[in-house]
Design a protein around this nucleic acid. Sequence first.
DNA 1: CCATATTTTTTGGTTAACCAGTTTTGGAAC
DNA 2: GTTCCAAAACTGGTTAACCAAAAAATATGG
Lengths: 234, 234
Amino acid sequence: MKLEVLTVSDNQEIQNSIISKIRELINYKNLEPGDKLPSERMLSDKFGVSRSNVRDAIQKLEFYGLLKSIPQSGTFVANIGVVAMNGMIEDILRLETPDFKSLVETRILLELKTVRLASLRRSEEDLKNIKEALDAYKEKALSGEDAVQEDLLFHLAIAKASRNSTMNTFMLTITPQIIIDFEKYHVCDKDQAVMGIEEHTDIYEAIKKQDPELAKQKMKDHFKALYQYCYNVK
Amino acid sequence: MKLEVLTVSDNQEIQNSIISKIRELINYKNLEPGDKLPSERMLSDKFGVSRSNVRDAIQKLEFYGLLKSIPQSGTFVANIGVVAMNGMIEDILRLETPDFKSLVETRILLELKTVRLASLRRSEEDLKNIKEALDAYKEKALSGEDAVQEDLLFHLAIAKASRNSTMNTFMLTITPQIIIDFEKYHVCDKDQAVMGIEEHTDIYEAIKKQDPELAKQKMKDHFKALYQYCYNVK
DNA sequence: CCATATTTTTTGGTTAACCAGTTTTGGAAC
DNA sequence: GTTCCAAAACTGGTTAACCAAAAAATATGG
């Protein structure tokens, strides 16, 4: 287990080092938006690493919109100037795995917004999906089983109903880590699950009534315990 | 150009189809958290696609925390139940490229929060970084040049000072697309750049004074024009 | 029959060869 | 000197062979 973590860390190091070298190259050669980077083979040769490592690094920079690979042509620097490029690569290199507090803080921010938007924009089908998620959660929680999954699916259903694809994506990306941390820190015990039913129902009713402020308040109440817990732990 | 878009779309289709098949497999075989998936070779064989396609699909599901590859052992379903797994894969398959309105809406939400947090948590070094970004923006804007990069670097400096790694990451991920859309829709003309100097300075001063509510209000003012523009366009 | 050592198989990851386009280049024709 | 075209070189993507480590199976000794 230790070894695995180590290798992952090493790979991360290698990738960051390659990203760093690509930045130096862009600076040194004064590459501007639209200019072509040296080929993957050349880079892997120059950096002394495998081509797949170079490809992975490029893919990451492509994800953040800094580079653009075109199939049989080359890799190009995106329509972004050298200043922004440097600043963003700097930030990307410093990206750390988010701590629990940061995660919860962000989740609360997002959910107070998505629940408000969902109240305003939900379709009848959205409402139906939320209701189904609520019922599934109810049943599981009442049976005394662990209902963390159904809990989060209820929240994801609200995020989907918010009709904001960016926030929906963000909720999707933080959910797995939240599940892991919840289990790690033993948040959401079973006694809270029953209380959660009432709170979830309140949120659902507010969305049904299309009352954004009420929905936001009910979500706030729902997060109250989590919020305090989170700030006590860390 | 058309062709490129087409192939990208095709690749996306292939990947989604593989993800979909993996889901069916998990459902059919009733795989639970911790269970091992068939090997990559077996999957590529069974699905009739290349192994690298399977690897890419697995990597994506790994990003969303649904699978976990362990080097010389196998790929395992994460500590997430079959219900949440299905719901999340469903959402992942439906992920669309975010529209401009969704992007701006999310950015405003994030920035109103980060500027507040930055006011409360900023270190002296954070403040220095923000000041430097502000000065760079000032200089560029006053010279009449395009200062979109320096503009966004100022905002990213604030995000960094918020000491919330998740929000910082989210700001990084949406920034490139925002730049692209800004240029596409010709937001942020040069006459706005000069006005932006004053607004940026106000925000900086509020952060310096560690006044979170003032900072939030100044950021709100800063976004006022953008907000209206965004809701008129779409 | 059990516990331990050893060989064999299986695994995700890596490397190198290959492919189908794109880009460059060299020289022929005018 | 310019234009054009074919051929060679180069490109990111794909495929298949290979690697080392981890499991699994088999053998060995008690």
